[in-house]
Amino acid sequence: MAVKDYLRQRFFPHMWCPGCGHGTILNSLLRAIEELELEKKDIVMTSGIGCSARISGYVDFHSLHTMHGRALACATGVKLSRPHLNVIVPMGDGDALAIGGNHFIHAARRNIDITAIVMNNRIYGMTGGQFSPLSGVGIKATTAPYTTIDNNFDVVELATAAGASFVARSTAYHVKESTDILKQAIQHKGFSVVEILSQCPTHYGRKNKEGDAVSMLELHKTNTAKIGSKALEKNPVLTPRGIFVDTDKPEYCAEYEKVIAFAMKEKTS
């Protein structure tokens, strides 16, 4: 199936600004789904609020556009009631780790089979450029005109510590790498977190003098390096890309089925 067949084109034009990285990430995701030959009816997408969350409207899957921060909570409900469906959750940095931070760590702790994509542009884009828990120190934002003093989460470290059994990072520049990682994340049985660095030229780029979308994309390329690469060895301050965690751990829905089977056996015996 062609990628455009996964889109609800009646919702276009989309709301993303020119140069936004989110469309590229959506493209990587749809290619991953296409290559896995998943059927549209077997995919559920839940999303919260923000530029990234608009994806659930643009894709032709079962989609739930839910409340700010609650995408993973709603996804958990969907997955527990229909464990055979693939549940994919696109989130922004604010949605996933500020207002939704609690759900994020608990979904990881349970290791429920959901694919969480954190589209990290380090800013609240939709509401006009406020800093987020992923902005980090020394960043300009509308709520920090004289730069931020807040430390940021490292999504990879946070997800790993909270118990996610698949954790990876890519960028909007590394389109094919993202597709490859997303394929593995979707196939992985357990909670998968894929952080994809995105660019917001409208708010983050303009405020922090990172230039236009092209130069921001260039930064994704120059500021990151693959895990195990010589570049990273030589320059450890670069942000590592790749798969950090990929382990087999008991998955929550499967464990829950076991509890039900056990309880039913007790009841009938």
Binding site: I99, T142, T143, P145
Partner: peptide, 20 residues
């Protein structure tokens, strides 16, 4: 405060007042 449309510019203005 936390940003939400259409309140956001109010709190942005306040943060500007405070930081300046």
């Amino acid at each position: 405060a936390y940003p939400i449309t259409p309140q956001t510019p109010l709190t942005e203005k306040l943060s500007e007042f405070v930081e300046s």
